[in-house]
């Protein structure tokens, strides 16, 4: 390959909307790597791309859906999960992926997040956590560590932040993992596993926002922030998730934390309907119940 060719082609071109590139992300931002790693996992998963939808909300990460050559839905702020829920339940043959940021999924969309996990809707949710609101200029949010500076915490954040992995596990997600965007191999494996697993699967990616969060907290440029990930990451699959919170000390516990089986929303629905209904005036006739059981 000549140098020119290297510059013109990207190995993932076939899965990107080339006509939407260049993307809007800053240089040094971790989002490009998050997207690239996701695409590698997607290709490996052998999922039918024609039957796959990707749904985002609003924010820097929210732009992901628009760059990927799948059915792309860029929805309202915080709402990708309920949109995806409608999409998936209305056509269970679709593979539905939610790709969005921490502010979108956990702050304004927090209620939707815990309920979709509770119901175990068959969705893969990938959340890029950069501890801040990038798109609007680096404000604080529910993931901003205590004492961190942001555009709206000029005296340092004093609110207790969410530990996303702990929240997802507590809400009922059947798969919960966290990696930094530096660890592309493990991250890719995790996303691949999440894509192939039935139920509400959740992957949190820790990723640098050097332009805002990094600058305001004097964490250096993108490269410096990633080098710090290398120093501070601790792999512990068996960690008690309540001890895996992220603070200003920079320590990041990563791993495949949760991997359990639980029937999905659709499975429970039909299984439940198939059972005799003692409180219903007219019970569902036996033969019909069999049909339902068969379906479940």
């Amino acid at each position: 390959m000549t140098e020119e060719q290297i510059a013109l082609n990207h190995p993932m071109d076939a899965y990107l909307r080339e006509d939407r590139i260049p993307h809007i992300w800053c240089s040094g931002c971790g989002l490009g790597t998050c997207l690239n790693t996701f695409l590698h996992a997607l290709v490996k998963s052998k999922i039918d791309m024609k039957k796959t939808s990707i749904v985002s909300g609003i924010g820097c990460t929210g732009r992901v859906a628009g760059y990927v050559k799948l059915d792309s839905f860029h929805t309202t702020h915080g709402r990708p999960i309920p949109f995806a829920t409608g999409l998936k339940l209305a056509n269970p043959k679709l593979k539905v992926i939610v790709f969005s940021g921490d502010g979108d999924l956990i702050s304004i969309g927090g209620n939707h997040f815990i309920h979709a996990a509770r119901r175990n809707v068959d969705l893969t949710v990938i959340c890029v956590n950069n501890f801040t609101y990038g798109m609007t200029g680096g404000q604080g949010g529910p993931t901003t560590p205590i004492t961190a500076r942001s555009a709206t915490t000029p005296f340092g954040n004093f609110e207790f932040p969410f530990n996303l992995a702990y929240l997802a596990a507590g809400s009922g997600a059947v798969y919960v993992a966290r990696w930094t965007m530096l660890d592309v191999r493990r991250l890719e494996n995790s996303i691949l596993h999440a894509l192939n697993k039935k139920g509400f699967t959740f992957v949190e990616i820790i990723s640098p926002c050097p332009t805002l969060y990094g600058r305001m907290n004097k964490l250096g440029n993108g490269l410096k922030m990633i080098k710090d990930y290398q120093k501070n990451t601790i792999i512990n699959h068996k960690v008690d998730l309540k001890d895996a919170a992220l603070g200003m000390d920079g320590k990041i516990v990563v791993g495949n934390f949760v991997d359990i089986q639980r029937p999905t929303f659709t499975e429970v629905l039909y299984d439940h309907i198939a059972k005799p209904q003692p409180n219903k005036k007219e019970d569902i006739p036996k033969e019909e119940r069999k049909k339902i059981e068969h379906h479940a």
Binding site: T85, G86, K88, N111, F265, I273
Partner: peptide, 29 residues
């Protein structure tokens, strides 16, 4: 709905209900 080949879901609020029906419509329902 569950007995005529459809799906009923009680969402967590009306925000979610409204956008879930948009998703379902895009799935062809």
């Amino acid at each position: 709905l569950p007995l005529v080949g459809g799906v009923y879901i009680q969402m967590e609020d009306e925000i979610a209900s409204m956008i879930a029906i948009l998703g379902a419509s895009w799935a062809g329902k």
